[in-house]
């Protein structure tokens, strides 16, 4: 910010001074969109925030107190994280070697990328139904295991933690892979060639050149995968453990607001959820800002 100078007769017109900072009438174009987001996102959010401090009982912090004092609700935080973090780690972790192998063009690559979009078309319900039927005790998966002699009795893969994790991987892996793939193809191939002429074998090239350049993108991918997995809601209800082993925080919030009609509690839960998620994102972003981030092209 510049120091505000005392007014002088030679002071240029306000319009000119604004123009100097890039402010002109074009900026009015931002207003409709920004106002819509403020009205539909910021206002409800702040309204929800103040509502969360006005519970029916228990004083200002009653709703928050209620959440943390009830073990079932409190444990939903742990359950959310224990699903979201492994799911995002698996999705990002598996994406890296696969997209590294596939960074070059080959026949059928476009088809493969298009196939990876398929899980996005499935939607939560078909995925959940499919998981119930395919991995269920009488499903093809257990049939096959039995046939191969890998399991004598059906393995319980649905209606529990594994089921939800499976649904998070089926819907989340293509997302992570496509993002990783696009970050990786942003790294100029001549960098690896240069490293190889300098005597680096494939592991050294990956370790010293590709991976450091990919890491910021991977962290963004992790963040976005995490946000997706963190908000897991429909699949946790459909393939999750009915006894509460996969009672994630979004279910907790939903039940409070729209099943018990305790809006204050529901909003409080939503705020807790937002804060937890932002903490993870801020942590990853801080870590990321300490890394190199910039051009990944051939020219510096």
């Amino acid at each position: 910010m510049t120091v505000v100078l005392p007014q002088s007769p030679s002071r240029p017109a306000l319009r000119h001074r604004l123009a100097e900072r890039g402010v002109d009438r074009t900026l009015l174009l931002v207003l409709p969109g920004a106002l819509a987001v403020i009205a539909l996102f910021c206002y409800p959010f702040l309204y929800g925030l103040q509502l969360s401090f006005q519970p029916a009982s228990g004083g200002v912090l009653g709703a928050y107190h209620a959440f943390f004092s009830e073990p079932f609700a409190r444990k939903s935080i742990w359950q959310t994280f224990s699903l979201a973090i492994p799911a995002s780690l698996i999705n990002v972790g598996v994406s890296v070697p696969i997209s590294y192998r596939m960074r070059r063009d080959f026949r059928g690559k476009r088809l493969l990328l298009a196939l990876l979009v398929v899980p996005i078309t499935l939607g939560t319900v078909l995925t959940a139904e499919g998981i119930l039927e395919f991995y269920g005790p009488a499903g093809w998966f257990n049939h096959t295991l039995n046939l191969l002699g890998l399991a004598s009795s059906p393995v319980q893969l649905t209606m529990n933690y594994t089921g939800v994790l499976l649904s998070l991987i089926i819907s989340g892996f293509p997302f992570a892979y496509l993002l990783t793939h696009s970050y990786l193809s942003g790294i100029h191939p001549s960098l690896e060639k240069a490293a190889s002429t300098l005597g680096a074998d494939w592991w050294q090239r990956f370790r010293h050149i590709t991976f450091p350049l990919l890491l910021p993108g991977l962290m963004t991918t992790f963040c976005l995968s995490f946000v997706m997995a963190f908000a897991v809601f429909p699949s946790a209800m459909m393939v999750g453990d009915p006894d509460g082993k996969t009672h994630v925080i979004s279910i907790e919030a939903y039940e409070a607001a729209l099943e018990h009609f305790d809006y204050a509690q529901g909003c409080a839960d939503a705020m807790i959820m937002t804060v937890l998620m932002l903490v993870v994102i801020v942590a990853v972003t801080t870590l990321r800002s300490r890394l190199y981030s910039g051009s990944t092209g051939g020219k510096g």
Partner: peptide, 30 residues
């Protein structure tokens, strides 16, 4: 345009993408 407060406006647009729908959906529904 590059203007003072552009980061703020960008932040305003990023938030609805970062916050999970269920978290702002409940207050919004209210």
């Amino acid at each position: 345009r590059d203007f003072p407060g552009k980061k703020l406006v960008m932040g305003l647009f990023v938030l609805p993408i970062l916050v999970p729908p269920i978290a702002y959906g409940i207050p919004l529904a209210t």
